[in-house]
Simulated assay, not measured.
Amino acid sequence: MQNLHPSPETKSAAPRLILSLASTAAEVREVQRLRYKVFIEAMGLAALVNPERLDRDEFDEHCDHLIVRDASTLKVVGTYRVLNPAKARKIGRLYAENEFDLGRLNHLRNRIIEAGRACIHPKYRGGSVIMLLWAGLADYMRRERCDFLAGCASMSVADGGHNAVAVYQSLIYKHAAPAEYRVTPHLPFPIRALAPAARAQVPALVKGYVRSGAWLCGEPAWDPDFESADVFLLLPLENLDSRYARHYGV
């Protein structure tokens, strides 16, 4: 999996981007260093600081890692990790099961690709990197013959959680999953105890999912490690809007 793609992040000398899958332990460490900078350093999560300056967990060795590099510097500027059904069976669960009861989705397990740890360098957030990553996800799903994309998306609670409540309320009626695909958080985020923000600021990842046809599968979970409210999203490929299907190569 490899592609070159022009990016509009800068008006002059726009970087060329290379999409690939990590093939060595060194490349996985590059991914983990980028995640550390974005998820731990930038968010000031003192509890997760470590001397290796790596964001990693037990799932990394079982996952494949999509990488976007700037062709001029070869630095990793974006990443997404993906877990296919065979590797999910090997580890015994999906990552999302740390936060949600996915019992109602048991019949789909052999058809689900789980995506997570989406991460883009702050200087490359103009849109090209995430589009390239999603194109990589679509290609990966075709190769694995899976027709559901699942993942958790995080919402900051830096404002006390009011925006997370507003986002949930703004999306649940239009984008709610059918009842048979609902999941239950192990540690529910207290959405009924908080007043919603006056205007919902939907995170880019959540916006990308729902615009592409994903379902919101229930109430958010509270993630104390990353200090976030997390929602579980499920995207059936048959729901994928034709405009986005063309972008992702489906």
Rank of each mutant, 00 (worst) to 15 (best):
Q169Y: 13
A229I: 08
H162N: 13
E97M: 12
D159K: 13
I120G: 04
S170T: 13
Q201Y: 01
I112N: 04
R199S: 14
C152W: 01
F100W: 02
A214I: 02
F148S: 01
L149S: 04
K123W: 11
D159P: 07
W134G: 00
V167A: 06
L132F: 10
R111I: 03
A204S: 12
K174Y: 12
G127A: 10
L105S: 02
V129Q: 06
A96G: 14
R93D: 05
P122K: 14
P224E: 10
P178R: 10
V157I: 15
C146R: 00
N98E: 14
Q169P: 00
D159I: 14
E180S: 14
E99F: 11
I113S: 01
L171M: 13
I113H: 00
Q169H: 14
P188M: 11
A198F: 04
V157S: 08
I112S: 00
H162S: 15
A153K: 01
A138D: 04
G218P: 07
I130N: 06
R142W: 05
I91W: 05
E219L: 01
E180N: 13
P224C: 07
S228P: 00
P220Q: 09
L216N: 05
L133Y: 06
A193I: 07
V165A: 06
Y181D: 04
G151D: 05
I91P: 01
I91G: 03
A200K: 09
A197F: 06
C146W: 00
E144F: 09
M141C: 15
E227Y: 08
E97G: 06
C152P: 00
G218Y: 05
G160Y: 10
N110L: 12
I120R: 01
L205R: 01
H107P: 03
I91F: 06
L194V: 12
P122C: 12
L133Q: 02
E114K: 10
V167F: 08
F148I: 07
G136W: 02
V202K: 05
E99N: 11
S228T: 15
E144R: 14
D230M: 10
I113D: 00
N110Y: 07
G103R: 11
R199G: 08
N98I: 06
L137A: 10
K90H: 12
W222A: 13
D159V: 13
Y181Q: 08
G136R: 04
D223V: 06
K90A: 15
P188G: 06
P122L: 11
A195D: 13
V157N: 03
P196V: 14
N106D: 15
